[in-house]
């Protein structure tokens, strides 16, 4: 069965409006994209939607009470709130350096959660 699906690509700030032609579980055509990222996005979004997750974790003795963190790669959309729940359990110790791994292989996704800034100790 051939069907058309509309998507908005979030790969970059342009936000192309994609029209994807699907035949069963196969993409026949992607229209509306202005670069290659759009085609990859359509494939990903329809079969395994993922998002970058950025949040904060508690930090002891830091200049601020929180340190911002993010997933190195986009994680499966259905796992976003599970990842956030994991982050809520974490408390790390200052000093923290940018790109320090805060959670390794979060929820067996193969993706690390890393710090997005230095957090000096006070």
């Amino acid at each position: 069965m051939v069907e058309k699906r509309k998507l908005i690509c979030v790969s970059c700030p342009v936000g192309c409006e994609l029209e994807v032609t699907l035949d069963g579980n196969e993409i026949v055509e992607v229209e509306g994209n202005t670069c290659k990222l759009g085609i990859d996005y359509a494939e990903q979004e329809l079969f395994d939607p993922r998002r970058m997750v950025a949040s904060t974790v508690k930090v002891k003795n830091g200049y601020h009470p929180l340190v911002p963190v993010y997933t190195e790669k986009p994680v499966p959309k259905p796992k976003i709130f599970d990842v956030l729940a994991e982050l809520r359990k974490v408390e790390i110790e200052a000093p923290v350096s940018v790109n320090d791994v805060v959670i390794e292989n979060v929820l067996d996704t193969g993706i690390n959660v890393i710090a997005s800034r230095d957090m000096p100790k006070v």
Binding site: C12, P13, M52, A54, P68, Y70, V98, N99, S116, R117, D118
Partner: peptide, 16 residues
């Protein structure tokens, strides 16, 4: 950072 570094960074990383 998508325009400058071709990377998808959070604001603090970009500032850093």
């Amino acid at each position: 950072g998508l325009e400058i570094f071709n990377e998808d960074l959070p604001g603090p990383s970009y500032a850093q």
